[in-house]
């Protein structure tokens, strides 16, 4: 078939290009200049034990702001395209009532999952994890609530409030960095401590918590829209 042959030729060409790039790449023993700056100065300047967190939140904080904006745009597009089904047709969605065991178990597990998400993004400067991971864990807790109870409606207004407020606070803390510290999204507007203790990294836990709430709210909003689409006629 001509189409598959064409695809194979294209993939073969791409493979050749990749192999050439791989052969020509200089074998490096140490870090690049940017990376060695981040790893050398990162713990001293931001007081964050996790260097990836200091890169994401402080040194490249503007990128993260743009990324959160993209997520907001995606959630808005999806909410715009998938209108909610009418209130009258609600009885159609509960045709498969889930079992007692699943409902009771999810009532126990959903708050624990939310707690785990909050733990992950509050400790983002000390251990692996942070806003994105915590937000995703919160959204998976929302998925469990949906699956256990197909007509689950709680938290819809809370999600919208969290979306707006966390975006506003994120930019607000960034602007506060201009006046109180060295620049936009600088974390030294709050007192810093020793590397490794809980209250150490200035504004990083606050910013990462805001990112976590924002990501969790956006992903939950996307899941709400996907669940509430109209059934196919």
């Amino acid at each position: 078939m001509l189409k598959k042959l064409f695809a194979l030729i294209l993939i073969g060409g791409l493979g050749l290009i990749f192999f050439q790039l791989y052969n020509q790449r200089s074998r490096r023993e140490g870090l690049t200049k940017t990376a060695s700056y981040y790893t050398e100065k990162g713990p001293a300047e931001t007081r964050s034990a996790n260097i990836v967190t200091s890169v994401v939140v402080t040194y490249r904080g503007l990128d993260t702001l743009g990324e959160v904006t993209i997520l907001f745009a995606a959630a808005s597009i999806i909410g715009f395209f998938l209108k909610r089904s009418e209130k009258g047709s609600k009885d159609k969605t509960i045709r498969n009532q889930s079992s007692e065991l699943l409902q009771t178990g999810s009532m126990l597990l959903v708050p624990l999952i939310f707690l785990l998400g909050i733990y992950v993004f509050v400790n983002g400067h000390l251990s692996p994890g942070g806003g994105f991971q915590g937000g995703a864990i919160i959204a998976s807790g929302t998925v469990l609530a949906f699956l256990a109870n197909p007509s689950f409606e709680g938290g819809r207004t809370l999600i919208h409030i969290l979306e707006s407020l966390s975006g506003m606070f994120y930019v607000g803390i960034g602007v506060a960095g201009i006046f109180l510290a060295a620049g936009f999204l600088d974390n030294r507007i709050f007192p810093t401590g020793n590397v490794g203790s809980f209250i150490s990294a200035g504004a990083i836990p606050v910013i990462y918590s805001i990112i976590g709430l924002k990501v969790g709210a956006e992903l939950s909003a996307i899941l709400y829209s996907l669940r509430d689409t109209k059934e196919q006629q």
Binding site: L31, A35, G42, V52, V55, V56, R60, T64, F132, V215
Partner: peptide, 14 residues
């Protein structure tokens, strides 16, 4: 190197 990890972290969410 922490820089590719930070990039991939945002790239997964996007």
């Amino acid at each position: 190197d922490p820089v590719p990890q930070a990039i991939v972290l945002t790239a997964i969410v996007i």
